[in-house]
Design a protein around this nucleic acid. Structure first.
Lengths: 340, 340
DNA sequence: CTGAAAGCGCTAACAG
DNA sequence: CTGTTAGCGCTTTCAG
């Protein structure tokens, strides 16, 4: 069995008490510089690694945080994770990552597991299946610091970090209209998601403001979020079969955007027939056959902010009550023929 | 503070001893069905969650394993992770994921952290910076089960899972030659990586077997693995500036392949000037402007096998001595003009 | 500034 | 089959 050096080993070797060694290692105030140096030098020498489980068991702190995202294979999330880690590392926090694959049960299981491992806090993007938050609410009430990222939960009062979903959709839709588009379809993720609601809101409001009636038949939901290609192809087919078929389509998700491109390609729809704009953080969008207009979220930055917020909750002495929701601008990239 | 129900709480509530409750919960053999049911029902009722840290501290087992990969934003790895998780989940194991960003120091830090959290085992893809394995060797010797995945370490005797790097490169190179290519360049990841050596080996051997002398100036290393675009563009520029410039290029990495496509595009190199074949597990390769010939690894399957191997080590009663290296076929997809 | 003692939540060894 | 006891490695009172 793997048996590392323990704090006790150091204590014996240096003829000190375990508590003194513990204090020296943790750099508390009531310890002499001399002992501190002695202990730390020896610890480095023997490559001592403190045991976070034992420490956590006692102190209920672990200097590590959990990250829960729906899907690691999504550039948006992997970029955000890198942002989170960039701050965590600097502050001496470890990160533990898990994916839910958009499953409610996996989400519960993963979150429980992390909480039991004494993560000091959680950064969460909700799974698209989740409609029930009691598991989170309970933990949050008991004092587990949580920051919501991207897909947020209104019912839980804490820091939240999102992009300006409403505004960017409003803006993009308006510009489509200014470019003469009238039948703008909207392809969304699962309807219960906060991002779906916000994005549709921006789209609909823009339509109304431009005096175009938004037709419900133009809005399609794909609960799989694009991981089920058939679902997306079907949606596109149905849209194109409408009496007044769309001249543009707004795709409100990353995997969804790619699935949409694939469907358009497979169905042989020409790009001058249907303009596409979609959310996407894919890092090879410049290499696509049909490089689409896209809304790119500042994922890395959003990750950094999330971690900063989480640290604020974790390290505060007094409970925070005035939580903010940080809204980060997204960048819109237009293909030439639409860039007004 | 988040304070969950403990095993002791159950013991008191049910007027049993903690050990009996522990046994009932863990379903050991020496416990009556009646007590087992009583305990488990009550546990479910109060939503008891066992504390893996406390359990781990005592038993040195945690029913969780660590996954260490260089980069989560790489489809190959995220697909493999899903494969690992599919088995882990079935067997009741949790997974903890970390990325090293190809940094040696981060790798050490991450692995230490996981070992200290009593993961029961590790599935590792080495960072490209790593040339020193003492940290791993030591842990492995002390009994920590390790499975190497993709980028392996010869010096450590354990299970390893790789794709048939040599053979697929040999085969692909041969086919390029049969298609009339003579000046085949090779773009590799960091030279110390096992995959780099194996892939170059396949390429060189094929050249020799086809009586084509392989010129060293045609082989370029990009230690960043494609995450530094400039590095790749420079390599391509240098290759194209050669007196006998390449008529084909073999790209031995996923990010590298995409960076190469970008360079080719940016430098205005025509596709009939330079045929490209590259390793890639990108899931939108069919949507690329220049869909390249590519070698696709069965990442999900490789992940599943890795986890299966790891479980074998973890759950065996007697130490394993005859470790295998599982070699999984990769699939080659040719663009039409090269498909002989 | 340092040490002794208790205990985090759980499992394991030993009785019975 | 169940209870008792001890202890995993660390932190945290509480003394001194």
């Amino acid at each position: 069995m793997y048996k590392p050096i323990t704090l006790k080993d150091i204590a014996i070797a240096l003829d000190l008490s375990p508590s003194t060694v513990s204090r020296a290692l943790r750099d508390t105030y009531d310890i002499s510089e001399k002992t501190k140096k002695l202990v730390n030098d020896y610890a480095t020498l023997v490559n001592y690694q403190s045991n976070p489980m034992a420490a956590g068991l006692r102190s209920k702190k672990s200097k590590s945080i959990g990250i829960v995202v729906p899907d690691l294979a999504n550039s948006f999330f992997s970029q955000a994770i890198s942002g989170i880690e960039s701050i965590a590392e600097k502050e001496g926090y470890h990160t533990i990552i898990s994916q839910t694959k958009d499953s409610y049960h996996k989400e519960i299981e993963v979150i429980n597991h992390m909480a039991n491992r004494y993560v000091d806090g959680l950064i969460i993007t909700m799974s698209s299946e989740t409609t029930e938050y009691t598991h989170l609410q309970q933990m949050h009430k008991s004092g587990l610091p949580i920051v919501f990222f991207d897909r947020i939960v209104d019912e839980i009062n804490t820091y939240k970090v999102v992009c300006n979903n409403f505004e960017s959709c409003y803006k993009a839709t308006t510009q489509l209209i200014e470019n003469g588009k009238r039948n703008i379809a909207f392809l969304a993720n699962a309807p219960q998601l906060s991002i779906s609601k916000e994005r549709i809101g921006g789209y609909k409001t823009a339509m109304t403001d431009q005096l175009i009636s938004s037709r419900d038949e133009l809005i399609k939901f794909c609960p799989s979020g694009g991981s089920d290609y058939e679902e997306v192809e079907l949606a596109i087919k149905q849209l194109m079969a409408l009496d007044e078929s769309p001249d543009a389509i707004f795709v409100a998700g990353d995997r969804l955007s790619m699935a949409c491109l694939r469907a358009v390609k497979n169905l042989g729809i020409k790009s001058d027939e249907l303009s596409i704009i979609g959310f996407s953080n894919v890092d090879i969008i410049d290499l696509l056959q049909t490089p689409i207009s896209h809304i790119r979220q500042r994922a890395f930055e959003m990750g950094q902010i999330s971690m900063t917020m989480l640290l604020k909750i974790i390290e505060t002495k007094y409970p925070i009550t005035d939580f903010e929701t940080k809204v980060i601008d997204a960048d819109i990239f237009w293909m030439e023929h639409l860039s007004v």
